[in-house]
């Protein structure tokens, strides 16, 4: 009884309240920036960098990677079927629903996991989540089929809420020799400059993965998380593991309502 009162009594905010609080914080900090611009991340905050970004996006140096991803996407499994046969709606306008909580397994399923499940269901070996040449380029193409969809992460059960809370805990937990959390940089210091890089706000960060850093090196969301953890001299979680999946679930929720655009340039 006491325990129930304690749990009920502590203010565990509903996800929508978390998001409203963070949004209003950024609306004050970045007054005048249109909501849909948050997907530009660091480029939403600097006019010169934004126009450089747009120049590069006119002729992206990574089109070859997307082309290779398209070939993988279209190649039939030995079963004769394809990813499009396996995913909802033929794989179009769905990426904004991922990650989602799967009650039967009591865990979060990322978009990459869904692709691997198609492979497994059709008798193919799964791709490694950290392999740029397979899973990387495949998601670069597959996510682009959802460009323009608005992020739509749902947290609609106690199980889902528990995964969200776990991701939130990881997002706010201080780690590494530098003792930073994700929030230290992407909430408290969004808009500040670290060396040469303007730090982007957490809202909007999930809409456009994978990114191509330097125009040619593909990073899925979890690869970028890894990079940030290394930067604060922390031991990164395993790519494709439960910690990162839950973190990605929480993190993606923060971008709800924003339009997807897969495969973009980053510095």
């Amino acid at each position: 009884m006491l325990a129930i009162v304690a749990v009920g009594g502590t203010a565990v905010a509903a996800p929508k309240d978390d998001l409203a609080t963070m949004r209003s914080r950024f609306e004050q900090r970045f007054a005048g920036v249109p909501a849909d611009d948050y997907g530009f991340g660091t480029f939403m905050l600097n006019r010169a960098a934004r126009s450089h970004y747009e120049d590069i996006m006119a002729f992206p140096p990574f089109l070859g990677d997307i082309e290779r991803g398209k070939t993988l996407w279209e190649t039939r499994f030995r079963s004769g079927r394809t990813y499009a046969d396996c995913l909802p709606a033929g794989g179009r306008m769905i990426a904004g629903n991922y990650p989602y909580y799967q009650p039967a397994e009591d865990r979060v399923v990322t978009f990459e996991m869904a692709l691997n499940r198609c492979r497994a269901a059709n008798g193919e070996a799964e791709y490694r989540y950290d392999d740029r040449a397979t899973m990387g380029v495949l998601t670069a193409y597959a996510r682009s089929l959802s460009d323009g969809m608005r992020m739509n992460i749902s947290i609609d059960s106690d199980g889902a809420k528990a995964r969200y809370e776990d991701g939130k805990r990881l997002f706010y937990r201080r780690i590494g020799q530098m003792n930073f959390s994700c929030a230290t940089c992407h909430v408290n210091n969004a808009g500040n400059v670290m060396r040469m890089e303007t730090i982007s706000p957490a809202i909007g960060q999930a809409t456009h993965f994978p990114i191509f850093r330097g125009g040619d090196t593909l990073y899925t969301a979890q690869m970028r998380f890894t990079r940030c953890m290394e930067q604060v001299r922390a031991q990164p979680f395993a790519i494709g593991g439960e910690d990162f999946n839950n973190l990605e679930y929480f993190h993606a929720y923060l971008s709800n309502g924003l339009p997807l655009q897969a495969s973009v340039y980053r510095r």
Partner: peptide, 20 residues
């Protein structure tokens, strides 16, 4: 590897080059 394995964007200690 578990650490992500991408090219490590590090630098020698003797320069003041950008972080990446």
């Amino acid at each position: 590897t578990r650490r992500g394995g991408e090219p490590q964007r590090r630098q020698a200690v003797t320069t003041g080059m950008p972080i990446f």
